[in-house]
């Protein structure tokens, strides 16, 4: 079993908040990903068992949503918003700067397993651009130097 007993209990509690248990599927997948860092096929099968679904029904949900990851990544996931309002204010320049600072391309993970760098569509910070999301946290009104400092402080 890859999903812990503690997470299984939280999934059962989440089911009770919906008229039909399946309503808690996204919440369950968030919980699993918080615990494991990503959602491997074994976890999909275990979640399917918990919800009485076929594994493919869980997989199609995992693969539909951008925030669910089937593949493992770095300890931190960093996303630069590259949609139009951010791009107008230098988001792509920022992304290139972070790529060269980390020595990886967008979509890759640093060799030490510390950071996976990506880009994301609009994150709702358009007036505070450019910005990046580091795991749960938004960092806004960035310039390349400050963004690099934030990344360098990540463990």
């Amino acid at each position: 079993m890859v999903i812990s007993e503690a997470v299984r209990e939280r999934i059962e509690a989440a089911k009770a908040r919906f008229p039909q248990p399946r309503g808690a599927l996204l919440a369950a997948l968030h919980l699993v990903q918080e615990e494991l860092g990503h959602i491997p096929p074994e976890a999909e099968r275990e979640v399917a068992d918990l919800f009485g679904l076929r594994p493919v029904e869980v997989h199609e949900v995992v693969s539909f949503y951008n925030m669910f990851h089937s593949e493992s990544g770095g300890r931190h996931r960093v996303y630069v918003c590259t949609n139009l309002p951010c791009s107008l204010r230098g988001a792509r320049t920022l992304l290139r700067h972070l790529e060269s600072h980390l020595g990886i391309r967008c979509g890759q993970t640093t060799p030490d397993g510390r950071i996976t760098l990506g880009h994301e569509e609009c994150l709702g910070a358009c007036a505070y651009a450019p910005m990046m999301r580091v795991d749960r946290t938004y960092h806004e009104d960035l310039d390349p130097e400050r963004a690099v400092r934030i990344l360098d402080e990540l463990e």
């Binding site: 949609n83 139009l84 309002p85 569509e121 609009c122 709702g124 910070a125 358009c126 007036a127």
Partner: peptide, 11 residues
């Protein structure tokens, strides 16, 4: 589910 690029009011 505010996701429209340019929109951040609901947040």
């Amino acid at each position: 589910d505010e996701s429209e690029p340019g929109s951040f009011k609901d947040r």
